[in-house]
């Protein structure tokens, strides 16, 4: 077993995340990280730039890297050694951020993903939300923008709600109209945001239950992991459901996919090396 450098690249719908690790058996050292917002740019070109910038900051050169693991929408990334799918990587990444976690809830712009894993990151079951988007992060972002609220204000405001207003419509466009109606009825931004958080939380709690995650720590990852209002709503939903789940976040939650990819990359690299020796 020897020391190796491994990197993870996670291309999401709005943002690119890259990380670099030094791995030696069970010893794992995080050397660097970088995010870049896509905003109408070519994601692959941007990835190249962000990746090089990260390596430079970490003092690593491309040739030092043993395994470049991609995840997310990066199946076609030209310089990747191998690709892992996002639920594989988020499970592992969540575990890295919180070794006690036995489930991960990855909340992205369009889909939510629930993953249940064991103590070494092996995925036991998982499920994605699909279909209509009124419960998605994208919807929340649109509404916040409409209400004139910055991303980092959402959580604080939501937690000040005293009488959350439920969004009933299934279709996001009609739900948006619901929200406009609420504003016209004088409902506060706090109560609107909390209402959206609650309906998202209920859906996500349903998702967790359906994969058999009914107790223990749930690590929240993905773009919305830092929304404290959503995390609070999740814990309330869990309490209402009388399940012993505790949703927690981590400042580096957004990197979970990239971290997981990098760590599985190392795992795979060693496995391949062993197989190579055997052959």
């Amino acid at each position: 077993m020897s020391e190796l450098i491994t990197t993870g690249v996670d291309i999401g719908s709005g943002c690119i995340k890259t990380v670099v690790f030094k791995v030696n058996g069970d010893k794992v050292e995080w050397l660097g990280k970088e995010t870049a917002r896509i905003r109408n740019r070519d994601p692959f070109q941007l990835t190249n730039e962000a990746y090089d910038h990260m390596l430079k900051t970490a003092g690593v050169s491309r040739s030092d890297v043993s395994y470049v693991a991609s995840t997310g929408d990066a199946e076609n990334l030209s310089f990747a050694t191998g690709h892992f799918y996002s639920m594989t990587t988020h499970g592992r990444g969540g575990l890295y951020l919180n070794p006690e976690a036995r489930a991960v809830l990855d909340i992205g712009a369009l889909n939510g993903r629930a993953i249940r894993m064991d103590g070494v990151g092996k995925v036991l079951s998982y499920k994605m939300t699909s279909q209509c988007a009124s419960g998605s992060g994208q919807f929340l972002e649109n509404i916040a923008r409409y209400l004139g609220i910055a991303q980092d204000e959402i959580g604080t405001l939501s937690m000040q709600a005293d009488d959350p207003e439920k969004v009933s419509s299934i279709c996001a466009v009609l739900a948006e109209t619901d929200v406009i109606n609420m504003v016209s009825r004088g409902i506060s931004a706090s109560n609107i945001l909390k209402g959206i958080h609650v309906s998202m939380a209920v859906r996500l709690a349903k998702l967790l239950k359906s994969i058999g995650a009914v107790d223990g720590i749930v690590q929240v990852t993905g773009g919305l992991a830092l929304d404290a209002g959503l995390v609070a709503a999740l814990n309330e939903a869990a309490e209402q459901e009388k399940v012993n789940l505790k949703a927690v976040s981590h400042p580096d939650s957004i990197y979970a996919g990239a971290i997981g990819a990098a760590l599985w990359g190392a795992f795979r690299h060693e496995k391949l090396a062993r197989l190579g020796q055997a052959a």
Binding site: F84, Y85, M87, T88, W264, F267, R268
Partner: peptide, 18 residues
């Protein structure tokens, strides 16, 4: 097809890795 690839791919990963 992206969500399909993601779900089938994770499934394949899980069988392959473990």
């Amino acid at each position: 097809m992206q969500p399909i690839r993601e779900q089938a791919g994770t499934f394949a990963d899980s069988i392959k890795l473990w």
